[in-house]
Amino acid sequence: MHAIEPPYLRIVARIRAGIAAGELRPGDRVPSTRELMRSYGVAMATATKALTALRREGLVEPRPGVGTVVARRPRARPAAAPGGPAPLDRIVAAAIRMADADGLAALSMRRLAAALGLPTMTLYRHVTNKEELLLLMTDAAFGEAPLPHRDGDGPAGGDWRARLETTARLQWGVYRRHPWAAEVMSFTRPPLAANAMAHTEWCLTALEAAGMPLPRAMHAAMMLANHVRGCAVNLEWEANAEQDTGLDNVQWFTEQEARFARITSSGRFPAVMRLAALGPDAVDYELDTLFEFGLARLLDGLAALLRVGA
């Protein structure tokens, strides 16, 4: 008896085939969650899961103001090693897939074991507890975005600003593919994941070479990483909110118009009212836009510190 293929996998297969056949070219927009719901007769969660799976494969990417489009350079799907991956690698990969699809709250050792077809206690032969599993997942996620090491690209080459932009955008890409990772990261008790620590080392070396003392450079590296994470914590929250309410951001704001009018009718918020009067397109609230704006301003501030030798 054949297992029934989950609906989201049918959607993924159809879009993947369209990309492979050239029907969807790099930069072409792919159907939104609502379009997938109408075309395939599926729920919002199923449509969102399909787009998440395509992003995880590197076949599509978000584009501010446009939606989800075919990636410019789709990543090849990694081939399985001879004999299959090692047990721990299989466990970590399955845990990442589960967290990507359903969020960190849905990940449990029991559910993970069931997905792998293993007794729960078997997992504990490879990972001590869920905390260690999250550490391994984070390390693997950051390992997908290695820092460049070619001549001229590493901390010993190029200018400090370009190097900090590189690490910030690589981190943003990690969180875009794996929104749960932003929840795992901490700045008081950071997970000691080597691939994540490499980003700290990269920033410290770049800023020290530019003349910044190491203690100040560490503050700068933490500030930069916290900006990226601060934007990224909204990714999973927004995805869950859209699934729970069935409304995207624009639709949600539209439903709040009456409440907004009641609050602002007091006259206490004149600047907010003037901004609202400019129209819905006056401000781009896309997370990618907010990330880029904040990144540029942070780097401007670090440049000023370096100019005065602080």
Rank of each mutant, 00 (worst) to 15 (best):
V66T: 13
T33Y: 01
A114E: 15
R110Q: 14
I19N: 07
S39D: 11
Y40V: 05
R29E: 12
M121H: 14
A71W: 01
A17F: 09
A17Q: 14
P74E: 07
A79N: 11
I96N: 08
G103V: 07
G84T: 05
G58H: 03
T120C: 02
A79C: 11
L107V: 07
A50W: 00
A45S: 13
G18W: 13
R75L: 14
T122P: 02
I91W: 00
K49Y: 01
L107T: 08
S108L: 06
D89Q: 15
A93D: 15
E35A: 11
A76H: 09
L54V: 03
R110F: 07
S32R: 03
M98A: 15
G103S: 14
L118K: 00
T68S: 13
V127N: 02
T33H: 07
L116E: 08
M37I: 00
R63T: 12
T68F: 10
V42T: 05
V70C: 03
V69L: 02
G58K: 02
P78S: 08
G84N: 10
L36T: 02
L104V: 09
R63D: 13
I19A: 08
R73S: 14
P26N: 02
A80I: 10
T46N: 02
M98Q: 15
A106P: 04
V60F: 03
T128Q: 08
T33E: 14
R110L: 14
L88R: 13
A81S: 12
V30T: 09
A45C: 05
A93Q: 10
M44T: 15
G18E: 15
A95P: 05
L107G: 03
A93F: 09
Y40P: 01
P85N: 07
A76Q: 13
R55H: 07
G58T: 02
G27W: 06
S39H: 12
A105K: 11
A86H: 11
A94L: 04
I91M: 04
A21I: 11
G27C: 11
V92R: 08
T48I: 12
A79T: 13
V92W: 05
L54M: 07
L112Q: 02
S39K: 09
P119D: 10
P74W: 02
V66D: 08
M109D: 12
G22Q: 10
V127T: 00
T120E: 12
A106G: 10
A113V: 01
M37N: 02
